Lab assay of single mutants.
Amino acid sequence: NQASVVANQLIPINTALTLVMMRSEVVTPVGIPAEDIPRLVSMQVSRAVPLGTTLMPDMVKGYA
């Protein structure tokens, strides 16, 4: 089972991601792979992401 990136806190719209905002977790459906966490740092979210939400490619500007 592949771990995905999950929000560790509420991430407001247009916030630049930092390591403390993200954790890896095995979830369904699968989201952005956990190994991409270093690449996500400083990228902005395109919408508010609630705590515990799996990050999907369309939620991060410039990821897809």
Results as ranks from 00 to 15, higher is better:
63 Y>M: 06
38 P>L: 11
37 I>C: 04
31 G>V: 02
18 T>Q: 14
4 S>V: 02
10 L>F: 12
35 E>R: 15
17 L>H: 00
3 A>Y: 14
5 V>H: 00
23 R>H: 05
54 T>W: 02
9 Q>K: 12
46 S>F: 06
24 S>D: 09
2 Q>D: 13
51 L>C: 04
2 Q>N: 12
40 L>N: 00
58 D>G: 11
52 G>C: 03
17 L>D: 00
34 A>D: 09
9 Q>E: 12
64 A>Y: 08
50 P>V: 06
37 I>E: 03
30 V>P: 14
56 M>Q: 12
31 G>N: 01
26 V>A: 13
6 V>H: 02
52 G>D: 10
57 P>A: 09
14 N>S: 06
61 K>M: 14
25 E>T: 10
15 T>C: 03
17 L>V: 03
14 N>V: 03
22 M>H: 00
29 P>L: 05
62 G>Y: 07
55 L>T: 00
28 T>V: 12
26 V>Y: 11
40 L>P: 00
48 A>Y: 14
25 E>M: 14
29 P>W: 03
62 G>K: 07
21 M>P: 00
40 L>Q: 00
8 N>K: 11
43 M>A: 07
15 T>D: 04
41 V>E: 06
63 Y>P: 04
28 T>Q: 09
39 R>M: 10
57 P>T: 07
15 T>Q: 07
61 K>C: 04
6 V>M: 05
33 P>C: 04
45 V>D: 01
51 L>P: 15
32 I>R: 00
46 S>G: 12
7 A>Y: 02
31 G>T: 01
21 M>F: 05
15 T>S: 13
9 Q>A: 12
36 D>A: 15
2 Q>E: 12
5 V>Y: 00
61 K>S: 10
49 V>Q: 02
49 V>S: 02
46 S>N: 14
28 T>K: 10
32 I>C: 03
47 R>V: 15
5 V>R: 01
30 V>R: 14
64 A>N: 15
56 M>G: 05
63 Y>N: 04
56 M>R: 15
1 N>G: 09
64 A>S: 14
43 M>L: 11
13 I>D: 11
28 T>G: 06
24 S>F: 07
22 M>S: 00
45 V>Y: 00
55 L>W: 01
55 L>F: 12
41 V>A: 08
39 R>K: 10
20 V>H: 08
49 V>C: 04
17 L>F: 02
17 L>I: 13
50 P>D: 07
43 M>D: 03
54 T>E: 01
14 N>Y: 08
14 N>F: 08
5 V>F: 02
64 A>W: 06
29 P>G: 04
18 T>Y: 03
27 V>D: 02
31 G>H: 01
5 V>E: 01
3 A>C: 05
52 G>E: 05
46 S>P: 03
22 M>N: 00
47 R>D: 06
49 V>T: 07
20 V>G: 10
4 S>F: 03
44 Q>P: 08
18 T>L: 04
23 R>Y: 05
10 L>M: 11
49 V>M: 05
27 V>G: 03
13 I>R: 10
50 P>W: 06
41 V>N: 04
18 T>G: 04
4 S>G: 05
51 L>F: 13
34 A>N: 05
42 S>F: 07
28 T>E: 12
64 A>R: 03
2 Q>H: 15
36 D>F: 12
18 T>S: 12
6 V>E: 02
47 R>N: 12
41 V>S: 04
12 P>H: 07
7 A>R: 00
30 V>E: 12
61 K>H: 15
19 L>C: 05
56 M>I: 08
61 K>R: 14
3 A>K: 10
23 R>V: 05
56 M>K: 07
41 V>G: 02
24 S>W: 06
23 R>F: 05
58 D>K: 12
50 P>Q: 11
63 Y>D: 03
9 Q>S: 08
17 L>W: 02
57 P>H: 08
63 Y>G: 04
27 V>Y: 03
57 P>F: 08
2 Q>V: 10
18 T>H: 05
10 L>T: 15
5 V>I: 13
26 V>E: 06
18 T>F: 03
48 A>K: 14
17 L>Q: 00
52 G>Q: 04
16 A>C: 04
17 L>E: 01
23 R>C: 04
47 R>H: 14
40 L>S: 01
37 I>A: 12
35 E>F: 14
3 A>E: 15
60 V>Y: 01
8 N>W: 04
19 L>N: 08
15 T>F: 05
27 V>I: 08
6 V>G: 01
53 T>D: 09
26 V>Q: 13
25 E>A: 11
46 S>T: 11
15 T>L: 05
55 L>I: 11
34 A>E: 08
58 D>A: 13
38 P>N: 13
21 M>C: 03
7 A>W: 02
63 Y>H: 05
19 L>I: 09
52 G>L: 04
43 M>F: 07
16 A>N: 10
51 L>E: 13
49 V>H: 02
3 A>Q: 12
39 R>S: 10
60 V>S: 01
53 T>A: 15
42 S>V: 03
3 A>H: 15
49 V>N: 02
10 L>P: 11
55 L>N: 01
54 T>S: 05
9 Q>F: 12
55 L>Y: 01
10 L>W: 12
39 R>P: 02
36 D>Q: 12
40 L>A: 01
43 M>V: 05
39 R>N: 07
32 I>A: 01
62 G>P: 04
36 D>R: 07
58 D>F: 11
42 S>P: 02
31 G>I: 02
4 S>M: 02
18 T>P: 00
3 A>W: 13
51 L>V: 11
52 G>H: 14
7 A>Q: 01
27 V>L: 08
32 I>Y: 00
47 R>T: 12
63 Y>S: 04
54 T>L: 04
3 A>S: 14
20 V>N: 14
32 I>W: 02
50 P>I: 07
57 P>E: 11
43 M>K: 15
11 I>W: 02
1 N>E: 13
27 V>E: 02
40 L>T: 01
15 T>V: 10
6 V>R: 04
36 D>N: 15
19 L>K: 09
41 V>R: 06
33 P>R: 15
42 S>M: 07
8 N>F: 05
63 Y>E: 03
55 L>C: 02
5 V>L: 04
10 L>R: 11
43 M>E: 04
47 R>M: 13
60 V>I: 07
33 P>N: 14
25 E>I: 06
34 A>L: 04
30 V>L: 11
57 P>G: 11
37 I>P: 01
33 P>K: 09
30 V>N: 09
21 M>D: 06
56 M>Y: 12
38 P>W: 09
5 V>A: 14
42 S>C: 04
6 V>N: 01
13 I>L: 14
25 E>D: 09
26 V>K: 14
56 M>T: 12
39 R>H: 07
46 S>L: 13
19 L>W: 13
36 D>E: 13
50 P>L: 07
12 P>G: 09
5 V>W: 01
19 L>H: 13
17 L>R: 00
16 A>F: 11
53 T>Q: 13
44 Q>F: 09
2 Q>C: 04
17 L>T: 00
39 R>T: 15
43 M>I: 05
39 R>F: 06
30 V>H: 14
22 M>A: 00
16 A>Q: 12
38 P>V: 08
11 I>R: 00
45 V>A: 06
58 D>I: 09
44 Q>I: 13
38 P>M: 14
20 V>Y: 10
60 V>G: 01
17 L>K: 00
64 A>E: 14
12 P>F: 06
60 V>T: 01
25 E>P: 01
42 S>D: 15
16 A>P: 14
30 V>Y: 14
60 V>N: 01
27 V>T: 05
57 P>S: 09
55 L>H: 00
4 S>E: 01
14 N>R: 05
14 N>A: 10
24 S>V: 11
13 I>G: 13
34 A>Q: 06
10 L>I: 09
32 I>N: 01
51 L>M: 08
46 S>R: 13
64 A>D: 13
30 V>F: 07
50 P>M: 07
40 L>C: 03
31 G>C: 03
1 N>S: 15
26 V>S: 12
7 A>D: 02
47 R>I: 15
17 L>Y: 01
58 D>L: 06
31 G>M: 03
55 L>M: 13
46 S>H: 13
28 T>N: 12
24 S>M: 07
44 Q>L: 12
2 Q>A: 15
15 T>N: 05
20 V>E: 13
1 N>T: 13
6 V>C: 03
45 V>H: 00
16 A>W: 14
50 P>E: 08
44 Q>E: 07
49 V>E: 02
42 S>Y: 11
1 N>K: 11
4 S>W: 02
20 V>K: 09
50 P>Y: 09
36 D>I: 07
11 I>F: 02
48 A>I: 08
32 I>T: 00
63 Y>V: 04
25 E>R: 10
4 S>P: 00
62 G>E: 09
37 I>D: 00
6 V>F: 02
39 R>D: 15
29 P>Y: 04
53 T>L: 12
51 L>R: 09
43 M>T: 04
38 P>G: 10
38 P>F: 14
34 A>Y: 06
61 K>I: 11
39 R>Y: 14
46 S>K: 15
20 V>A: 11
50 P>N: 12
43 M>H: 10
64 A>H: 15
28 T>M: 14
48 A>F: 11
11 I>P: 01
38 P>K: 12
16 A>I: 11
